[in-house]
């Protein structure tokens, strides 16, 4: 088990959210969208310019920027 930030996941890779290291507006927005510890997610892909990233969690697709993905620490196998 290894913890890295969401930015460093490759397309197709799955992980589980370990921690969200930001508060304020961004933190609240991420929680509203269901990104809380224990949530499994999978990277679907990245936009043509490598940013933003598209992920799948709780059965739906979400997109966020790499610099926002930095705040999401995930556990990978």
């Amino acid at each position: 088990m290894q913890t890295i930030s969401l930015r460093h996941l490759a397309p197709g890779q799955s992980a589980v959210v370990a921690k969200v290291t930001t508060g304020g507006e961004l933190g609240r927005r991420l929680r509203d969208m269901g990104l809380v510890p224990g949530t499994p997610l999978k990277v679907i892909g990245r936009a043509p310019l490598k940013d933003p990233v598209e992920i799948k969690l709780r059965g739906y697709n979400l997109t966020l920027r790499n610099n926002e993905a930095d705040h999401i620490i995930v556990e990978v196998e």
Binding site: E25, L26, M33, T63
Partner: peptide
């Protein structure tokens, strides 16, 4: 500075 871009991609 920039603000969050966190958006649902609906099916």
């Amino acid at each position: 500075s920039q603000a969050p871009f966190v958006m649902e991609l609906p099916p």
